[in-house]
Write a protein that binds this DNA or RNA. Structure first.
Length: 706
RNA sequence: GGCGAGGUAGCUCAGCUGGUUAGAGCGCAGGAUUCAUAAUCCUGAGGUCGAGAGUUCAAGUCUCUCUCUCGCUACCA
């Protein structure tokens, strides 16, 4: 590790309108926890900040729906998430919230500074939907209407939750305000935009080469591939981004003519890292600027991949535009965790939330570390990963129980049996030199892996450490020697060395499985690990001194982990089986997905559609498209050119001669430069497969379908 | 179509700037052992490194083409 004096570590601020699930935990919190605990063990000066992100329209909407205040929502989820984190050993230095006054001030100051500086913002006026009854502009989420793509009648202004397509409010058919239920009008409004585009050049240099203004800033090779890739693909097309909204929930924009406007959440949220640090500094008698404005401060953002663009482009641009702040030296974004083969989905009940796990596994011994271990072992560090209960069981029983737990138990039992728990002295210990050397190598590698954010590898090193212990114990087989000669020095040496390994484990496992670390320390009759413990451990090792000296009395043997596949006690296996059964029940209960039935229409409306039979006479692909075919269709009285999105399902040559049914009085429209004069009718099933609709027998062209 | 990531043993993945018979863990098969939560330890089987072409004395590793998976994006009348 380099000579940096301070670390400022952040984890993505959870949005306070819902509970976090295991995917969030594995993405941005657990990895940061490992990293920060490790730094603390080395005695580094580090602050790790996080907190609730409590603004934005989604919260006000939810509050309205549930008939409670936004404040009630954020209080509820702030407490819930904060509590779950604590119970899982996520050791933030502060879990702040963006509703705090300190944050409001900080964010407003930040805005004012950029505004006063000039050149960073611009104001633009455009038309947005406005609710005349409530006299306010409507955020995207406040408008519902019919989705233009799937005809779902309750699509939001920014997204249709039925078909998943991203929308803009003006695309909605029949828009309605969720406040008054009435049709909103379009009205001009002014917003502030952050001129992101003007930062493109230095951002590129910074991300690609790790240099800022010709000065080396960080090693770009230390960044994850997928992070670099995504950043660079964004850089080619940076545009000014709106940073204000017409909303009454959030941080008021501190500028003239900004009544009724608040800072857009993505602008205020990352500033939350700064305000959290300020609050922590006040509470702990520190100077927050040392962690944000000092050259020897190293800023690291832990996030999920959905946040890469904000943390690698937008926020750095904000910091640089401001001028006084350091830029992140790394953004080790994780990919996504799936759950038993599917995406986590709250609405479908797929997956498990942190508080839910804690509740349902409340009788499971060492449940926190069991979960942490499984998530770390299979962390989505460089590609999406999948959480499976079967793997959870395997990791737990084969690795935590059979490898680490068993080794520690063997050593503690033997020491108690042979020496009444007193650590024996090692004399002429050279025979164990190779074991101790490999222990040293593993410890070194473990540290390096953590420093490279490779936590999966790191935790496997932990397992290697206890494997070396197990192998060593097996090689010496002290129980054999002891039967012949209880006073034999070889037995004493062996157990002395094994206890040292247990001691190393107790320290090195702390970043990963802190609850177990405490238990191992208790077994060894030692205090909990503390800041700087790893540094002194490494020093002792160098000086070839024992971590736990001869004569020290260790505790009585107790089990660290209880096997899930236990012959006598099936309770834990049943717990797992229940989880699996619950998932199966969801799968079984699933109604075949279907399009919602549209609103009732009339015969008069129906006859407006002129649907006729026809025959495809020519077909070719439209260039530079995936799905589009240009078809010439004979409708009897004339030939029509029709562009149709069926290229993924039909080859042009197979279509010629095919009879079809088509809408002939649809207004013509250009698609990719080709004018389409109608629409071929197809059906689409849930797999997305298309089927042309056509007469059952040869019928002739141009006849009306009714 | 554009951009990004990825396709390596049954499964999950390592393989840096190209260099001897391609690795680990799990799983599997055989053996050893009993201090230990039927845990541990040893040995072994298993891969034409997505396909093809090229550069090179030498390619999983570089270049090109193709193909499949995932994400973003365009398009779907």
């Amino acid at each position: 590790m380099n000579t940096t004096k301070r670390y400022t570590v952040t984890s993505a601020l959870p949005y306070a309108n819902g509970a976090l699930h295991l995917g969030h935990l594995a993405g941005a919190y657990l990895p940061a926890d490992i990293f920060v605990r490790y730094l603390r063990l080395l005695g580094k000066d580090v602050v790790w900040v996080c907190g609730s992100d409590e603004h934005g329209a989604a919260i006000t909407i939810r509050a309205k729906k549930e008939g409670i205040s936004p404040r009630a929502i954020i209080d509820k989820y702030h407490e819930l998430n904060k509590g779950s984190f604590e119970r899982l050993g996520i050791s933030f230095d502060i879990y702040h919230r963006t509703s705090a006054d300190l944050h409001h001030e900080t964010a407003q100051d930040f805005f004012k500074h950029l505004d006063a500086k000039g050149g960073e913002f611009e104001e633009k006026t455009n038309e947005q939907y406005y609710d005349e009854e409530y006299n306010q502009f409507l955020a995207d989420r406040y408008i519902t209407g019919t989705c233009p793509k799937c005809a779902h009648t309750e699509a939001y202004g920014d997204q249709c939750e039925n078909c998943g397509s991203d929308l803009s409010p003006t695309e909605l058919i029949n828009p309605k305000s969720t406040l008054s239920g009435k049709t909103p009008i379009l009205k001009e409004t002014t917003h502030w935009y952050f001129k992101l585009d003007k930062h493109a050049a230095w951002l590129q240099e910074w991300i690609e080469n790790g240099q800022v203004e010709g000065k080396e800033h960080h090693n770009p090779k230390a960044w994850k591939n997928h992070v670099l890739g995504q950043c660079l693909s964004w850089l080619s097309d940076l545009r000014p981004r709106a940073i204000t909204r017409d909303l009454d929930w959030g941080i008021p924009v501190p500028a003239k003519g900004a009544d009724g406007k608040v800072l857009y959440v993505w602008f205020d949220a990352p500033i939350g890292y700064i305000s959290a640090t300020k609050q922590w500094a006040i509470d702990n008698n520190k100077n927050w600027e040392d962690y944000w404005k000092s050259e020897d401060a190293e800023l690291i953002h832990f996030i999920g991949k959905d946040n890469i663009v904000f943390h690698c482009i937008v926020f750095p641009a904000m910091l640089k535009a401001h001028g006084d702040y350091v830029l992140p030296t790394n953004v080790p974004a994780n990919q996504f965790l799936n759950f038993e083969g599917r995406k986590f989905s709250k609405s479908k009940g797929w997956g498990i939330e942190m508080h839910q796990y804690l509740e349902e596994f409340k009788d499971f011994p060492n449940k926190e570390d069991a979960l942490r271990y499984a998530l770390i072992r299979n962390m989505p560090e460089s590609k999406d990963a999948d959480f499976k209960w079967d793997e959870f069981v395997e990791f737990h029983d084969n690795e935590l129980v059979a490898n680490i737990g068993n080794f520690i138990n063997r050593v503690v039992v033997l020491t108690n049996k042979y020496y009444e728990g007193i650590v024996p002295e090692a004399i002429n210990n050279e025979s164990a030199a190779s074991e101790l050397a490999s222990v040293h190598t593993i410890i070194t590698e473990l540290c390096q892996e953590i420093e490279k954010y490779n936590f999966r590898n790191a935790i496997q090193k932990l397992m290697e450490l206890s494997s070396v212990g197990n192998t060593y114990l097996q090689d010496v087989s002290p129980w054999k020697i002891w039967k012949e000669d209880p006073e034999c020095q070889a037995v004493k040496n062996c157990l002395h060395n094994c206890i040292q390994i247990v001691g190393f484990l107790s320290v090195l496992c702390e970043p990963f499985i802190p609850f177990s670390s405490d238990k191992i320390r208790a077994l060894l009759n030692l205090p909990k690990v503390n800041s700087g413990n790893l540094a002194s451990l490494l020093d002792l090792f160098k000086a070839q001194k024992s971590l736990i000296p001869a004569g020290h009395k260790i505790g009585d043997p107790t089990l660290l982990f209880a096997k899930i596949h236990d012959r006598k006690d099936h309770s834990r296996l049943e717990l797992i089986e229940k989880q699996k059964a619950d998932l199966q029940a969801i799968l079984d209960a699933e109604v075949p997905p279907h399009e919602p039935v549209k609103d009732t229409t009339t015969y008069d409306d129906f006859v407006k559609l002129d649907i006729r039979t026809g025959t495809i006479v020519e077909a070719e692909k439209v260039k530079k498209t995936d799905k589009l075919l240009k078809l010439t269709v004979d409708v009897g009285f004339e030939k029509r050119t029709i562009v149709s999105g069926i290229a993924k399902h039909y080859k042009p040559e197979d279509l010629v001669g095919q009879e079809v049914v088509l809408l002939v009085n649809l207004a013509p429209r250009k698609l990719r430069g080709v004018e389409s004069q109608g629409m071929i009718l197809t059906a689409e099933n849930t797999k997305g497969e298309l089927c042309l609709i056509s007469p059952k027998q040869v019928f002739g062209n141009g006849f009306v379908v009714k």
